[in-house]
Design a protein around this nucleic acid. Structure first.
Lengths: 330, 330
DNA sequence: CTGTTAGCGCCTTCAA
DNA sequence: TTGAAGGCGCTAACAG
């Protein structure tokens, strides 16, 4: 595209380029007369300053990278939206990168983003340690981890209190009389899956309940396939996320059982559709939009105040009771 | 972040910066000896070339902007994914912008993107005419319209054959014996809503069927609220998209009717969840991922071959028959 | 095969 | 209040 440069504006206005720069950025006083001339020239030429020249000069791009597993997953879409809304307000722009939870991909994307001179990074990665990322953080790359923390890397993060979420859920289930459980969890390596697993086992042991636990992955298919193979139904099937729960419910109903009459099923996340699912899903709501927003806010703070505040923000989950669970007789 | 520049690499390797540039880009022969030195220096310093300096120099940023209504809508998430996958393979990067279908917002975003020197733009806007966009296109901005065309602007586009989709759907419904229809359509201004409306009326008139048509908007709530007010059920309720259909079905079932026994309901789009909805939704599948991919492909072609090929790609929709419609006795 | 240099568009001293 | 000039990091002539 044919773009006029500051030079052309200056020429048309009959002033120096510094004067143009000054009126554009209001960075120093300019006489009313010249200001008017410049403004006219800008308008006439349809001039837009080149952020990329500006970036080169200033060493800041006003651009944030976001590496996440998959934007197609409604859970992440909400988070991205929260981040983008905040960033835009602050004059930043978002570069989106899908990693498919692939560690090598993540590294490549990171390299690209660094080459693009991002001012900061929002990162929802695989849980596994990332050498390059760690090195870049040491060298001053500003990062906020989102939803997942990487062990061994010291940085800021925004997560939801998974422990509390799981406790809320299990307490509710236990209180309403469920005594045997199967937990169909998501990816083993995942930060949240691990925590949920721990809480689950702890609760079960403590209440001396019958339980089984399995790692699968966070998808409808995983839930469906797994549930197809269940022979004896427990009182409750706890799922690693809502998608798994959908799969489980469909599989169970295909086998001729009914939810929640024959078995209670719960999700985790509360994505958009869960309230429309049949039966509407009892689940733990994660404040997704807020998570994205808070992470962006924290990142910008770190960038603009140039502090190395390693802060963790832990958001509160919420128990959403709908129709996929029932009250059991004691 | 503290980044080494090409100068520092040159110094450490004991060569000139042009030599460094040459080995980095393989742009001219360099002796094995110097090459090795350079590579060692690059590695040692953890050097990444600055794409932004490169961009300034070359006048290309390898960056594509994408303005769309809302990433939170699964329909668009799939499209974005298709675009991003293709762009990444080609070495491009995607800047995502949510416009919420707001015309002024669109203009602002466009200005930002232009300032960021995007090489091209993917655009899914409101249907309404956009003066700034039109001017920029005239000045050489490369744009591919996606899913929606703006009347009066001459440019490339990728859309789905809405006319055909609607025909497929109505032919199926008519053939299976439905004789009275209500069409709960989406936003009036929208390109696809308009076309679907036209086809609908035409088909109805031609087959001399009883029908009503309403514009609402493309949301669950719109479908739900509207359906709540329906007094007399037709044979079929045709919806502007899947979300509307979900709302309609829920509202109708709350009123004590059954889908499809008392009324057939159809969607449009076939988003992720529609096959899991209960009843699974009969709908028209739009090849969303492919749409994003094709649009990106076309855009890159336009950019790299620097041709002004104004090409329209029209993708084929597909009728997906599931359980929300039934065969009526003639 | 290698090094020197101009300049992409902008901001920011510095001097006037 | 204004203008001239250097330089951000890089590539692409140009010269050797």
């Amino acid at each position: 595209m044919n773009r006029p440069s500051i030079k052309e504006v200056a020429k048309k206005a009959g002033v120096s380029i510094s004067t143009v720069s000054r009126v554009l950025n209001n960075s120093a006083p300019v006489s009313e007369e010249l200001r008017k001339k410049v403004e006219a020239a800008v308008k006439e030429l349809g001039y837009y300053p080149s952020n990329i020249a500006k970036s080169l000069r200033k060493g800041k791009t006003k651009t944030i990278g976001f590496i996440l597993p998959d934007i197609t997953n409604p859970f992440f879409a909400d988070i991205v939206r929260g981040a983008e809304d905040f960033l835009r307000k602050k004059g930043y722009t978002l570069i989106l990168c899908n990693s498919d939870q692939n560690g090598e991909q993540e590294i490549q994307l990171l390299e690209t983003l660094i080459s693009k001179h991002i001012d900061g990074l929002l990162f929802t990665g695989t849980g596994s340690f990332n050498l390059l990322l760690e090195e870049k953080i040491r060298k001053g790359l500003k990062v906020v981890f989102l939803d997942r923390i990487i062990q061994g890397i010291n940085s800021s993060y925004v997560i939801v209190d998974n422990k509390k979420g799981m406790e809320l859920l299990l307490d509710f289930l236990i209180k309403s009389g469920h005594k045997s459980f199967i937990f169909i969890n998501g990816n083993k390596e995942t930060f949240s899956a691990k925590i949920r697993y721990e809480v689950f086992v702890e609760k079960m042991e403590k209440a001396k309940l019958e339980y089984k636990h399995y790692f699968t992955n966070f998808s409808y298919e995983a839930g469906y396939n797994f549930a197809k193979k269940i022979r004896k139904l427990p009182h409750a099937i706890v799922c690693g996320n809502d998608l798994i729960a959908y799969g489980v419910i469909d599989a169970i109903e295909e086998k001729g059982y009914r939810v929640p009459d024959d078995v209670s099923v719960t999700g985790f996340d509360d994505i958009l559709f869960s309230k429309h699912f049949k039966p509407p899903l009892t689940t733990i709501r994660q404040p997704k939009y807020k998570m994205g927003m808070k992470a962006a806010e924290l990142l910008i703070k770190i960038i603009e105040e140039n502090k190395f505040l390693n802060r963790g923000i832990i958001l509160e989950p919420e128990l959403i009771i709908r129709k996929s669970t029932k009250e059991l007789k004691k």
